[in-house]
């Protein structure tokens, strides 16, 4: 069953309420006239398929677990924020803090993304076909970021774990980030992800991981030491 929600005729509250009701039935939903409004598709916890015909504002497809979302346009800040599972894709560009705190699933950006893409990421895969801004993967904890274009300044700053792959140029490495050679298995995995998104390129990638120099304080007090 396919439903169409006209965002011109509904408040954000009504849209999300309808989405929650319809998603429980596993329905396929189209949203039209989204007009870059904030908080479209928030808090969905069921598997369903949603297509937005137009751009969305902040926090689209956020704090959700399971939906398959396609946005035919641009997205504002924090697209796919705290996604637990499911897929989110936007055909054009995404704003800052893309996939912030994402814990699972996958987020795909057909164009470029702003600053802090994959900030505090805790799992899943983030794929950006164009470029990303500064602090890509800032304080990243787990998961994988793939950038087919260039990444800005301070890539992987303060990252704990996880991996960032950049095919283009890197502005600079962030604090405690280091570049290491991507293994064949790494590249096969990344190329598979590209293929899953219909991308037939097979570029080489720079692989950025944590240097793990900031995992611990350099020194401990006597009582702290005896506790370890």
């Amino acid at each position: 069953m396919t439903y169409t929600l006209d965002a011109d005729e509904l408040s954000i509250r009504e849209i999300n309420k309808r989405l929650k009701q319809l998603s429980r039935t596993g329905a396929e939903i189209h949203i039209v006239n989204s007009r870059a409004r904030h908080n479209i598709i928030v808090g969905l916890l069921d598997r369903c398929k949603i297509t937005v015909q137009g751009s969305v504002g902040y926090y689209s497809a956020s704090v959700s677990d399971g939906p398959e979302v396609i946005i035919e346009g641009n997205a504002g800040w924090a697209l796919g924020e705290n996604l637990m599972s499911g897929t989110v894709s936007v055909t054009r560009d995404a704003g800052a803090s893309l996939a912030a705190g994402m814990r699972g699933g996958s987020v795909y950006v057909g164009g470029s993304a702003g600053a802090r893409a994959g900030i505090s990421m805790k799992g899943g895969t983030l794929l950006v076909r164009g470029n990303t801004g500064f602090l890509t993967g800032f304080m990243m904890q787990e998961g994988r970021i793939i950038v087919l274009g260039d990444a800005g300044e301070s890539v992987g700053d303060s990252m704990y774990e996880g991996t960032i792959y950049v095919a283009g140029n890197i502005g600079s490495l962030g604090s405690d980030a280091k570049e290491e050679e991507a293994s064949e298995d790494d590249l096969i995995g990344v190329w598979q992800t590209l293929e899953d998104h219909g991308i037939d390129q097979r570029p080489a990638f720079k692989k950025i991981v944590s240097a793990r120099r900031l995992y611990h304080f350099d020194s401990l007090e006597r009582l702290e030491m005896s506790a370890v």
């Binding site: 954000i12 509250r13 999300n16 309420k17 929650k20 904030h38 908080n39 928030v42 808090g43 504002g57 902040y58 926090y59 956020s62 704090v63």
Partner: peptide, 12 residues
């Protein structure tokens, strides 16, 4: 906007 997001997620 964040507060509105949390309201949406918790149905206000």
């Amino acid at each position: 906007v964040k507060i509105e997001q949390l309201r949406e997620a918790t149905d206000w």
